[in-house]
Amino acid sequence: MKIIYALFAAAFAALAIVPFAAPWLQFVLTIAIAKGFAAVGVALLLRAGLISIGHAMFYAAGAYTAAFIVLWSGISDLFVLLIASTLVTAAIGALVGAYLVRYRAIFFAMLNLAVSMVFFALLSKLYGITGGTDGLRVPVPTVLGTTLTKAGFDIVLFYVALALMAIIAGLGVQFLKSPLGHAVGAIHTNEVRLEYLGVSAWSVLLIAYTISAALAGLGGAIAAVSIGHVLPEYAYWTESGHLVLTAVLGGIGGVAGPFIGSIFLEIVHTVAVGVAHNAWNLIMGATLLLVIFFLPQGLYGLVTKSADKTSSAKLGENKS
């Protein structure tokens, strides 16, 4: 298990030098981490056996909340934006969730899809408020009262996102170990038994749903200030599908999985678009098929497997 922490530390250090080693990757990775938050949210529900094909709505809600706060109130501090967007999205998640967590399986998936498409339609049609399909511009936020250039802000944002990723990953591991974390998994394995233990499945799921929405909102807010423009397409169902794919591809076994999946997908995307403007969709599709066929546990499974192999090999050496 120690090897896996060493692996993560090395990966984290590699990410931290990106702004200097490969500046063009910085934006790609900021977006990848932002989407990673949303994918962690989706993965949390997947542990409960529920697929949400509508989580892009919370991602978009976070993004639009950040935009509205800057445009309407004039408050433009990065940390205020991130915290407020997360809280607002959590509130929306609790509201929508109170109704949706009563459903299971295909009904849960489809209702999430339906609500998210209503949200998408509102974003594109409330022209006077949301700017319609042309979206809204988000000015460069200040950081703790300091006004930065966009380039300077982007570097700060990248490290803030990186730090948040580490914090969320740490909290996530603790959450999964907690009674509540186990209860989420128990909904998938045996919901009736959970109820007999005196734990309300509805409350457990509502908490999980609210957390997952809040994570997506945080990701959306990071994306909004990074891109500098919010668009209804963030809430479109293909984005939701992308998030599910990211979570499954990365692996839902641990909190790191969705982040690994997200970074992997964004980099493959960037490389594919650079290599072949006519065939990038094909390259993406082929890569996904390969991962799904050969790594059923996701990319995270690959990491844990190789880590296990090394540690068991070492154990073997010690024994002999």
Partner: peptide, 10 residues
């Protein structure tokens, strides 16, 4: 938009 901006920046 995200992909377009990423590619533009690259």
């Amino acid at each position: 938009a995200e992909g377009v901006i990423a590619e533009y920046r690259r």
